[in-house]
Every structure is written in C-alpha cells, then in structure tokens.
C-alpha cells in the first residue's frame, strides 16, 4: 500500500514538473477582444489585428513560442500578476499609475484618444462645463475611464465591459458621447458605412498623467529578460520594415509618422 502511494506521488510530481516545463517555454500573452483594429476576430473566428500580427512577428523574430489568451479587460493586470499569463499586449497605454505595478516594453504605437458622437449630435465643445450632465460611455478600467472620472465629475459616466457595448448603446441613443482610443472609434464607428458618426473636438493625448507614452507590452516587474527580448525583436522589426508594413496595413500611409513612438 505504501509502495503504491509512493509511486502515485512520484507520478504526480513528475507530471507536475512536466506541466511546469511546458509553461516556461510558451509565452502566454493576454489580450481583450474585440478592440478593432488592434485586436479582433474575423468572421471565421480567427484572432487578428495590429497587436496580434505584431505580437506574432515579435515572437517569431525572438524565436519564442507564443500563445494568445483572451480575457476581460479589467482582469488582464490581475491575471498577469497572479501568473496566469506572462505578458499583456492589448493596446495598453503606458502610464505612471500602471508603471508602479508592471514592467513595460518600449512603446510600439502612439495613438490619441478621441470623442465620438452620432453625426447629428449638437455637441461641439468637449470641456467639462460643456459636457455637464451628458452621457459619456467609456470602457471600465481604461485610462479613458480614469480621465473622465477625474476631470468630468459632473457628466453622467457609463462604464462598459467592452468597446462594442459602447458602440451598441451610442447607436441606440443611450449615450451622447463615447471616449475611446482613436483607432478603435475610427474602425468601429467612423468607417462603418451603415452608421453615421463623427469625432467631436480635438484629439486628446494630454495630460501625460493619464494618456501616457503610447501602447506598450506589459510584463511582471521581475521578468526583465523577457521584456528585453521583446524590445530587441521590436527594434529588428522596425529595421527590416515589417513594422512599417503593419502600420500601413492597419492605419494607412498617413499614420506612419504619427504612430511611431
């Protein structure tokens, strides 16, 4: 009986190490879908987008085995810290608040935030006074959420789990404005032929306290080697032109200069 127990325990220990070894080879990258065009799924269910294509290229360049792991936006950072994933590449803006918790790669894309409204909206100004009492939709836990919560205390702020829910509600007239990363609003609202939307006011990328330094890949603070691998791969992709191709593919030729951090 004792022997049997010992054998079973040994077996369990062996499988446990085997499982751990597998985990160490694969870099599990967390992301939140849909966030078109940064990350979304094609009609056939295939995961794609700027982050996904760039991420795959980076992993290939650094000869790493990567695996995408879809999650709710607000569980990404806790998952990273509790080692359920090893990196976050999900249009996450680098800012000081997040730097306290995470280690970031060099920024790989800079995009402003923007206000979106239905085309027939009468709203023209976006100052906190002008938007008093207006219904503003943001994605919960994003820097847009933090900015609006702190600066637009008199507005009626509605927090959604995904960016798509915001589009649905602004379409049905439940929101006056949506405050999103510009490329996401552009793809999900401005570029849709059957929907009538416009941007209101200026693009927003200040103050840096909220809007930070562009999108970065997030790691646990101790994983410096992993971050360096990604940084090196990013430099190589920028040199060999792969990076430029991807920016042009997703944001057009004109965006190339603005997008580069």
């Amino acid at each position: 009986m004792k022997k049997l127990l010992a054998v079973t325990l040994l077996g369990a220990a062996l499988t446990a190490t085997a499982a751990q070894a597998r985990d160490n080879d694969t870099v599990r990258i967390g992301l939140n879908v849909p966030y078109e065009p940064m990350e979304y799924k094609t009609a056939s269910g295939e995961l794609t987008g700027f982050d996904v294509e760039l991420g795959n290229a980076l992993c290939q360049q650094a000869s790493m085995n990567c695996q995408w792991n879809e999650q709710a936006w607000d569980s990404l950072i806790p998952s990273l810290k509790s080692r359920k994933i090893d990196a976050i590449m999900s249009a996450m803006t680098i800012n000081d608040e997040r730097r306290k918790q995470l280690l970031f790669s060099e920024p790989y894309l800079v995009q402003p935030s923007a206000w979106f409204a239905p085309a027939d909206s009468a709203i023209t100004a976006t100052s906190p006074e002008a938007l008093k009492g207006k219904r503003i939709g943001v994605q919960r836990g994003t820097l847009q959420d933090n900015y609006v919560t702190d600066e637009y205390a008199d507005a009626n702020i509605k927090r959604y789990a995904t960016a798509d829910d915001i589009v649905i509600d602004i379409e049905s007239g439940r929101l006056d404005l949506a405050f999103l990363d510009y490329p996401i609003g552009k793809t999900t609202m401005l570029d849709q032929e059957d929907k009538q939307f416009k941007t209101v006011g200026e693009m927003v990328s200040e103050p840096k306290k909220y809007f930070g330094d562009g999108f970065g890949i997030a790691f646990r603070q101790r994983d410096t080697t992993l971050a360096e691998k990604f940084n090196a791969a990013l430099d190589e992709l920028k040199e060999n032109g792969t990076y430029d191709q991807l920016v042009i593919k997703y944001f057009g030729e004109a965006a190339l200069e603005a997008a580069k951090p």
Partner: peptide, 22 residues
C-alpha cells in the same frame, strides 16, 4: 453592473479595475 448600473458590484468592479486590487 453589466448594463452600466453602478450598483454595489459595479462599484467594486470600478475600484478593482482602477487600483488592480481585487
């Protein structure tokens, strides 16, 4: 809270995602 009502759970979600402190 999934339909944007700020109920007790919605408030907890907010604090959780703002401070990453589940």
């Amino acid at each position: 809270s999934v339909v944007t009502i700020m109920d007790l759970t919605g408030a907890a979600y907010y604090v959780y995602s703002r401070f990453y402190a589940p």
